[in-house]
């Protein structure tokens, strides 16, 4: 099936089976490797992207379900007003250990801050608990979200 996907503001024509998850269209058809495969079942959040600004799991989103929705991925966050702040905060706090889950964490954090510019700890817990960091950089993720939200550095 032929689909036109709007990714980070650019249209991409792809021809894939309708059941193909968006994750594998991004990674293996369009060679956008930033979105990561972790569990394949929407359990870990490593593949988080935005559809019209809402965080979704690309591993469990069939390409046929995307339609005309605007897709944002980690590769587009440098151009995203909130995403850029989140990326900068992640670097400032030196969040990553292995770094594999962090694209998904940044996508979830950006969606949170776009909707809730000054999140409470409870907001962060609720919104970020779908993203697993096996290295457990959670203390720093929380600090970085607060930094991106314009709060002081200390968590």
């Amino acid at each position: 099936m032929a689909y036109t996907l709007n990714i980070n503001g650019v249209n991409h024509a792809v021809d894939v089976d309708e059941a193909t998850p968006l994750l594998w269209v991004l990674r293996d058809v369009l060679d956008m490797k930033g979105t990561k495969f972790g569990c394949g079942s929407g359990l870990c959040g490593a593949c988080t992207v935005h559809l019209n600004g809402v965080a979704v799991r690309a591993c469990s989103t069939p390409v046929s379900g995307v339609g005309t929705a605007a897709i944002s991925t980690i590769e587009g966050m440098a151009e995203h007003p909130v995403g850029k702040k989140v990326q900068d905060a992640w670097l400032e706090i030196d969040v990553a250990q292995c770094g594999y889950c962090q694209a998904g964490q940044i996508m979830s954090a950006t969606a949170l801050l776009a909707q809730t510019p000054k999140p409470t700890d409870a907001d962060i817990d609720a919104h970020m608990s779908g993203n697993i960091c096996r290295c457990a950089t959670y203390n720093r993720i929380r600090t970085a979200i607060k930094l991106a939200a314009g709060e002081t550095k200390g968590a």
């Binding site: 979105t35 250990q97 694209a103």
Partner: peptide
């Protein structure tokens, strides 16, 4: 000295970096 992970910029921008990203 507190020194940031050398691959931090690639990690936060989603550049290919890991084994799974090799082509």
């Amino acid at each position: 000295q507190r020194t940031k992970d050398i691959d931090g910029p690639k990690i936060v921008t989603g550049q290919p970096l890991f084994g799974i990203d090799v082509s």
